[in-house]
Design a protein around this nucleic acid. Structure first.
Length: 796
DNA sequence: GCGGCGCTTATACC
DNA sequence: ACCGGTATAAGCGCCGC
């Protein structure tokens, strides 16, 4: 039979000692299809320059490796002309019966004087399959094959709960790009104890197209039509499984579900002795080990949206935490409902109804977030050619590496290996190299600023100067363009093209595509300096930073020589005074600068700004770097580095400072800002400030026992633990400073629920004054004196 | 008991 | 451990007096 097919989930299995890849996806009719394809595991033995392959081939062909469960042997060899790190090499491609034994066979070959290195025995089988067979994730293919019968592959067709199971004869990518819309199902659980296995699952919500349910066993009124009630936890879980199977999703998604919902469900199903048969194989989820366990379900892609957001988007989001509420609020404009978990021990009927509603809303929000992020997941998957499961969990370094890996064949390149433990140790011990240039500004309020910035500076430096592992000869970087800079150049080019297309014809797909290329370009520099990278090259990373620095310094010099006054600059941006020049003059000058820039490097106009404020460092006379505020021609204010944008300062401070900056930038003087400050000082002293505005929020970044210094947030976290609230790394700890006698700030730490008077002096001297002091200093206004004055007035 | 200072820690910028 | 270096600043904790 022949049909169209889009692979969504990739897996492999062994049959009679050989590897087969199992693809699960949809056909053109929307049916769930499993396609079994054969795969020939192989790796390369790269020969030394001038070495003859014959002797090596002979040794290799006789190799057999016996393990407890199977014997793996070399099936065939091919002598091939390839490239390795840009150099022509002769290599022997070694085909082995089982992928899992590649490493052992490679070791068995051992060191022969003819052999330079062995490579590609350390790649994932699925990655190699995609790379060699070209069956790319989420792309439409035409498949020719036979429906599998009960006798094929030990009867796997029967074991899989899919519409059709086919043994592939031929799989070809379709020429035209066709849309694929996955069936997404979102879920969320609520428990009475957040610690895994300790509590019970009170309810499970499901939300997708045509499904909207809360399953529970706690409260059986038929008040909300979407609530279904069951006899116990086990029965509820069984029904959850049934609904998932019935809905037959491509994607089952949760938020933090790798770390919470799915493992909790698994533990609860074991406790209740019910099957969590979510997979098409009728089996429960498995958890791959790693820093964070990943929950895998056979034939369905389990997507933990938190992982994807955390790994790929977090640095570009405004959200101060990656909670579902904040992230969904920012990305889909929808937020969660409120529920007070303190009510749990004594729930009224009404409390239960609002709890159900809350639980449902979480699944709804998760579903909407999944729909919103779908174009991004899809594009990342298509671009780096890795399955959805991996793509939604990989960090940017892996994305860069996968992009390289899946494009190596165009360059005839054999893949470099992953660094081993010792190599990683050596790389990490190397220490830092010199990085970016930051211009020290003179504190002051400036009118009419121009900001230039280099587009994708580090990436364009890598391309323009050909900086990479394969183009480094130990001393200099070669002229002949290497595959890394070439690919990066393509990435930058594609980003440009898709950005333009998007501007002309906006769509979620184009936005996501353009964005994915942008993120890849931005991560390429860090990748070469990352100790875990296959194509790690410290010299390339250091040279990138150095050439970037040379270029910004040269541009600054050019701009200065033209008669402009430089105000600020950081890494790839330069701010200077427009002076008496017209915007047209500035743009003409920009063109002149661009004409002299090397390679693909490009200086761009970032914007014109009406005013800009720069302050001094605390205690020191020098100008503070990475701290400034600008206002553009539309009156939009851009604040960088100030306490306003730091989540570890209380709201009162942040709001006040933001208002102060805004007034100063808009009015051009400090008068109104000063009035505002006085009002807040007054409110603070009259104890009129809301406690919520005084809450401090600091992230716990390691387990409590690993702290050498006990900062206020660590004290707060210990208090929480003492009260039975579990704390863990990553949590944002909330507390306020109240009155007390202790010497340390930490001695006066109170949790939000604790009853205490706020420490007026602390909030005055450690929050408000420090945040506005340097700003008013620019106008020679001493806020210390003003605060003192207020005190005097009050006394009299 | 207190001020100074180095160190630890969190968070931001690009 | 899961992309890099540069920078600000608070608060702890130890030292010397």
């Amino acid at each position: 039979m022949k049909f169209e097919f889009v692979p969504v989930d990739y897996d492999y299995f062994d049959f009679e000692g050989r590897n087969y890849v199992k693809l699960v996806g949809r056909n053109e009719k929307g049916k769930k299809v499993c396609v079994v394809d054969s795969y020939e595991p192989n790796f390369y033995v790269i020969l030394k320059k001038g070495a003859k392959p014959d002797k090596v081939v002979k040794k290799i062909e006789g190799i057999e490796v016996s393990k407890a469960s199977r014997t793996s042997k070399v099936l065939k060899t091919e002598v091939v002309d390839k490239k390795f790190l840009g150099k022509d090499v002769k290599a022997i491609r070694v085909f082995v019966t089982n992928h899992k034994d590649l490493h052992d066979v490679a070791s068995e070959i051992g060191d022969m004087k003819e052999i330079e290195v062995r490579r590609e025995y350390d790649l994932q089988i699925i990655s190699k399959y995609i790379k060699e067979n070209g069956v790319d994730p989420l792309m439409w293919h035409s498949v020719e094959g036979d429906i599998l019968g009960v006798d094929d592959f030990g009867g796997i067709a029967d074991a899989f709960d899919v519409d059709i199971c086919v043994g592939a004869k031929k799989i070809m990518k379709l020429k035209e790009e066709k849309e694929f819309k996955p069936k997404i199902l979102a879920y969320d659980i609520e428990t009475d104890d957040v610690e895994l296995g300790k509590g019970e699952i009170l309810m499970v919500s499901l939300y997708g197209e045509g499904i909207k349910k809360v399953l529970t066993w706690k409260k059986c009124d038929k008040v909300q039509d979407y609530v279904e009630c069951f006899k116990d936890e086990g029965e509820m879980i069984e029904k959850f499984v049934e609904y998932v199977n019935e809905y037959d999703p491509d994607i089952l998604t949760g938020y933090f579900s790798d770390g919470f919902d799915l493992p909790y469900l698994k533990a609860a199903s074991q406790k209740n002795k019910v099957k969590l048969a979510l997979g098409v194989d009728g089996k429960g989820p498995t958890f791959t080990r790693g820093r964070i366990p990943s929950g895998k379900i056979n034939g369905i892609v389990h997507v933990d949206l938190f992982r994807f957001v955390d790994a790929v988007f977090s640095q570009y989001l405004q959200s101060e935490t990656l909670s579902l509420n904040e992230v969904a609020g920012e990305l889909v404009g929808e937020s969660k409902e409120d529920f007070d978990f303190n009510k749990l021990p004594h729930m009224t009927d009404k409390d239960w109804y609002s709890f159900f509603s809350y639980n449902l809303q979480d699944a709804v929000v998760t579903f909407k977030l999944a729909e919103k992020l779908w174009p991004d997941m899809l594009e990342f998957s298509k671009i780096v050619k890795e399955p959805l499961f991996e793509v939604t969990r990989d960090r940017m370094s892996s994305h860069v590496e996968n992009y390289l890996l899946h494009n190596l064949d165009r360059f005839d390149e054999i893949s470099e290996k992953r660094p081993g433990h010792d190599e990683i140790g050596r790389r990490r011990a190397m220490g830092k190299y010199e990085g970016a240039f930051v211009f020290e500004p003179s504190p002051g309020l400036y009118d009419n600023l121009v900001m230039f910035d280099f587009t994708s500076m580090y990436a364009s430096v890598i391309v323009s100067y050909n900086l990479s592992k394969a183009t480094f000869d130990g001393k200099d970087f070669e002229k002949e363009p290497g595959f890394f800079p070439i690919m990066l150049g393509e990435i930058i080019e594609k980003r440009k093209t898709h950005k333009k297309e998007f501007a002309k014809n906006p769509s979620g797909m184009l936005r996501a595509r353009s964005n994915a290329y942008k993120l890849l370009a931005n991560a390429a520099y860090g990748y070469q300096g990352f100790f875990g990278a296959r194509y790690y090259c410290r010299e390339a990373a250091a040279a990138t930073a150095k050439f970037a620095k040379d270029n910004i310094l040269k541009a600054i010099d050019t701009i200065e020589k033209k008669g402009y006054k430089i105000i600020y600059g950081d890494t790839d941006s330069i701010a200077f005074l427009q002076g008496d020049k017209s915007k047209k003059d500035v743009l003409k000058f920009l063109k002149e600068i661009n004409a002299d820039l090397p390679g693909i490097m490009e200086l761009d106009l970032e914007d014109f700004y009406g005013r800009g404020l720069f302050v001094s460092k605390r205690g020191n006379a020098g100008g503070a770097k990475k701290k400034y505020a600008l206002v553009d021609s539309k009156g939009k204010i851009k604040i960088r580095g100030f306490e306003t944008v730091r989540r570890d300062w209380c709201k009162l401070t942040r709001h006040l400072q933001s208002e102060v900056l805004s007034k100063i930038l808009k009015d051009g003087n400090e008068k109104k800002a000063l009035e505002l400050l006085k009002k807040i000082l007054e409110d603070l002293k009259r104890r009129k400030i809301n406690l919520d505005d005084l809450m401090m929020r600091t992230q716990l970044r390691r387990p409590l026992n690993e702290y050498l210094a006990e900062g206020p947030h660590v004290v707060a976290a210990r208090k929480m633990e003492a009260e039975g609230i579990p704390v863990s790394p990553g949590m944002v700890i909330e507390y306020f400073i109240g009155e007390g006698t202790g010497k340390r700030v930490g001695d006066r730490v109170y949790l939000p629920e604790e009853k205490a008077k706020y420490d007026m002096d602390y909030y005055l001297n450690n929050q408000i004054l420090p945040a506005v002091e340097n700003i008013f200093d620019v106008f020679d206004v001493s806020v210390k004196e003003i605060a003192e004055g207020e005190k005097q007035e009050k006394l009299f």
